[in-house]
Design a binder for these strands. Structure first.
Lengths: 182, 182
DNA sequence: GCATGACTTGTACATTAGTACAAGATCTCG
DNA sequence: CGAGATCTTGTACTAATGTACAAGTCATGC
């Protein structure tokens, strides 16, 4: 019947990217620990062999996905930085952006998967550090010494909101940020 | 050769507890997603069949372990509560206890595994809520309205410390807590 | 004593997993 | 054009996994 699928045009970079993006989706759905070659391949619409061709091992594949997610966040952080520069009320602006970030819960979960995985696997630590350092850098101009505290507060608030599946209390978060920055 | 292992004395409750405790160990090591019947059984020093005899499915087994961990934390929270009542400087006392809690990183990881898993699986949400509510209840007498903010700060600080594998900056945390409680 | 049920232990089985690889197809470059 | 590298696709193989279950052992109530 339907024989072998005709070959698609070659595009190695696109495949790498598609696989990395698929990893993010799968991780958001089932977590890092249950992410498999096959689930990623299916999500990317690619044959199983593509995963191992581009990434020698499953850990490499997952790491590529997490790197992809962290890079996306990096550009989002730049946007935060720009918006904070012109904000009349930085605390409120930050709380608002956190709420926006949290609106896509699937995506947000991935970053916390990464945090927890980094606690166990040193290889993932640089990725987690990149995100945290990026956040602190964004906060530093407005929070000064308190940047790390604000970062912890934000991470904790997001994590709790994700875990309980409750909406973020934006006003309360803004107020708390303000107190830390004072 | 060595035939069948002689039967050990019966003690269903002890087995349930041993399995739950073993789950906590395994989760701390490999994460919830990579926790298996066999790893738990090996850790508990029990045959594979014991896991499915006492817990119909793997999810039940893992849930029992997480419940076990959460209950242990519950009693630790009571101790926190008592110590806070007589503390001259509640913020410093709290930061100290958080640092102590974080000293056993293996154990601490499990709670954050739970958080992240609860974000995906509603069945685990009550467990995560129990921990968060317990923490807030402990904080409420000293932090009042700010209890939730302090809880978020603490959770964020612990998570970041776990992820980066860095020591908790106890003094900075105490100062931040103080600012939130003011 | 002995039958019934609860518990223990080992093993079996189907499924899914990671990874390797063969066979084409397409590209590059002389 | 043609050889060799690169890429695509499907399949194969072994190990590990969740779960079921048979067989044996112990307790408990008649």
């Amino acid at each position: 019947m339907t024989g072998r699928r005709p070959q698609r045009p070659r595009d190695p970079e696109a495949r790498r990217a598609a696989l990395a993006a698929a990893v993010v989706e799968v991780v958001a759905e089932v977590g890092i620990g249950r992410t498999t070659h096959r689930a990623v391949a299916a999500r990317a619409g690619l044959p199983l062999g593509a995963t191992t061709y581009y990434f020698p091992t499953l850990d490499d594949l997952v790491a590529a996905g997490l790197t992809h997610a962290t890079e996306a966040l990096r550009t989002e952080l730049d946007a935060w930085s720009a918006r904070l520069r012109t904000a009349a009320d930085p605390a409120a602006a930050l709380a608002g952006m956190v709420a926006e970030y949290l609106a896509d819960r699937r995506r947000a979960r991935v970053e916390y998967e990464l945090y927890v995985a980094a606690a166990r696997d040193p290889a993932l630590r640089p990725l987690a550090e990149a995100w945290l350092r990026g956040l602190c850098d964004v906060l530093a101009p407005h929070a000064g010494e308190a940047a790390r505290d604000v970062a912890a507060l934000v991470d904790g608030a997001v994590l709790q909101s994700l875990a309980m599946d409750t909406d973020l209390d934006q006003a309360a978060l803004a107020a708390a940020i303000r107190r830390l920055m004072a």
